[in-house]
């Protein structure tokens, strides 16, 4: 975990193109520090979260995406894709990772944004 935290924001990694992720779906980027889920919404926005549900660690990438939320496949918690926060009244969050889109190419930064201890 230490190593990721120290990474710089500008370490962008190209992870693929938009059409590699199903609309209202997600794919996984495997890293040495664990999986990152990359989601695509109906309006083609892309979000990346740690692939661990704040509840009991379920793989969020396997859930159903709706609006800009995902429903965890294990016990149906809902998590906001833009903030990583669990939908109230549940509490907790999944760490966010910066995403940048150029044309249809997607870039991901492995340095999680601050504010969420769930790593």
């Amino acid at each position: 975990m230490q190593t990721t935290a120290k990474k710089q924001m500008n370490d962008w990694i190209e992870i693929g193109t938009l059409d590699a992720i199903p609309c209202l779906g997600a794919r996984v980027v495997q890293t040495a520090d664990g999986d990152i889920a990359v989601f695509r919404t109906a309006d083609d926005r892309v979000f990346a979260l740690r692939d661990r549900c704040p509840h009991k660690g379920g793989p969020l990438s396997q859930g159903i995406v709706h609006g800009n939320k995902v429903a965890c496949p294990l016990h149906d918690w809902k998590v906001h894709l833009d903030t990583g926060l669990a939908v109230e009244p549940d509490e907790g969050c999944a760490a966010r990772y910066p995403v940048r889109i150029e044309g249809d190419r997607i870039f991901l930064s492995l340095a999680p944004e601050e504010g969420c201890p769930n790593l």
């Binding site: 992720i21 794919r27 996984v28 980027v29 495997q30 890293t31 040495a32 520090d33 990359v38 492995l110």
Partner: peptide, 11 residues
């Protein structure tokens, strides 16, 4: 196929 393989492996 996309359902079963990771989008990318890093590191």
């Amino acid at each position: 196929r996309h359902e079963f393989i990771p989008l990318k492996m890093v590191g």
